Computed example of a mutant assay.
Amino acid sequence: MSDPSDSIDLPGQLQALNRRLTQSNPELYRHVALYLQVLRQALPQQVRQACFHLSTQVHPQRYTELPLERRQLLHGQIQELVGRCCSLLTVEHLVILAAQISRERQRRDRHDREQLLEELTWEGESGGGEPEPLPPGSVQIAFAPPLAGGSFLWGALGHGEAPPPDTDEGERHDPDDAQFDDPDEDSEDGPEEGPSDETKGRSDLEELEDSLWQAGRLPDDPERVLRWMDGMELALARRLRNLSHAINVELLRGGVSRSLLPVSLLDAVLAGQLETMAAPANLMRLPLPFPGARGPQAQTLAVLLRPTDLELEEPRLRTCRRRLQQHRQEVRRMAQQFRRLQRRLRIHQAEQLWLQDIRPPSIPTD
């Protein structure tokens, strides 16, 4: 049993830790806002440099063959795309996008769980009765398809990691809108029925996740603050990926590029699932799989804006990143302390209940 003196003021220690976290949240908000402010200032030049390299070092002949009007239109379109993206690089807009990404992941996980359950049910009902006993050492070959719940397993095992590429989004992407529509718009969900008893627990978890993205308010739990920071990083990467794809579309329309990489391929590179070759900052070089081709290996280059490349090229962004990392380390220490205090409090409460349960009943006196 633990020492009772160690558990006297555990609720007070937890409250003090929450107050300390709440006091540090405005500083975190300022760090994120400053990072995005510097990014908005540096992004136009970084995009121009990446497009300059593609147009003059990779495809110089194509660019010189373009008429003046077409070149001016290309520059104007890219500048407009960057301006629209910069207007969305604020804390408030990224919170909205982070909430949308969270809902997308919830829908994907819910669909994968339902599909996995259907496959398990189908496999259990497809036998048509009790299977006949097999001789020892025999192998039974089933004709049922394998389980396809890969994304469900990824969500269970890879919590906190970058999600696998969302191929559905890439398939329904329309280059004309450059993916700068209202990020809070849910286009896939229709009217839903009321939750059943089997889904109430899951609905509670989803509501708790949605509460993480309340506008103008950061969580008061260190674990949730870390998740908030991770969600903002995912939203920023999504916003830059959308801009990268839109720029590649304009380079294709302008005649500088001859191919367009799908969004799912960009996501695979960002998630580290696809190996790339060395390339200048904010560009992605991929080998083309042409087996048996002679001569140098075919390659393709495309714009891919990533925070790491932008920070390497902009010293002010590196300074802002260091401040965010330092704040993350402090919040992580708070989370570790918070978990220890919570565990000690639960142990203390369980011990008190145990002592109450084994206490002999009092004998009434006359």
Rank of each mutant, 00 (worst) to 15 (best):
D177I: 10
L265R: 14
R318I: 05
P175H: 04
V269A: 04
E104L: 07
R285F: 11
P195S: 15
D182Y: 12
L14K: 11
G231N: 10
H59G: 00
A293L: 05
L288S: 11
H31V: 06
A302E: 05
A279V: 09
L251S: 00
S24N: 13
R48F: 08
L34Y: 10
F180G: 10
A178Y: 08
L310Y: 03
E65S: 08
L117H: 09
K200S: 14
V303L: 05
H53G: 01
P183W: 02
L66A: 03
N242R: 03
R227P: 12
T199P: 09
S2T: 06
R333P: 04
G194T: 13
A178I: 09
S187A: 02
S102I: 00
E65K: 12
P360R: 15
S7W: 01
T276H: 02
E311D: 07
A16H: 11
L208W: 10
L226G: 12
S102M: 04
E275Q: 12
D3Y: 00
R48V: 10
E185V: 14
P183H: 02
F143V: 13
C320F: 06
E223M: 14
L208V: 06
S151E: 14
A350V: 01
R239L: 04
A178L: 10
D174K: 01
L134V: 14
T199N: 13
T308Y: 03
R294W: 07
R306E: 03
F52G: 11
L261G: 00
A142G: 11
L310P: 03
E313W: 01
K200F: 12
E118S: 05
Q61T: 12
F180Y: 06
L43A: 14
P60I: 00
L317G: 04
S151Q: 08
L153N: 01
V331A: 06
P364N: 10
R239M: 05
V303Q: 01
G295K: 01
T167A: 13
E250P: 00
Q100S: 08
T365R: 15
L212G: 09
L34I: 03
H75W: 06
A278P: 10
M334R: 08
L68A: 15
L312A: 09
I96V: 03
Q329Y: 11
E92C: 04
P11N: 06
L240Q: 00
D267Q: 12
L270G: 01
D177A: 06
Q106S: 04
V249S: 09
R241N: 05
L270N: 00
L89Q: 05
L283Y: 09
V249N: 09
S2P: 04
A279Q: 07
R241H: 00
R62H: 07
D176L: 02
R332F: 12
D197M: 15
L89D: 04
R332Y: 14
D220F: 12
A144I: 15
L212M: 11
D220I: 08
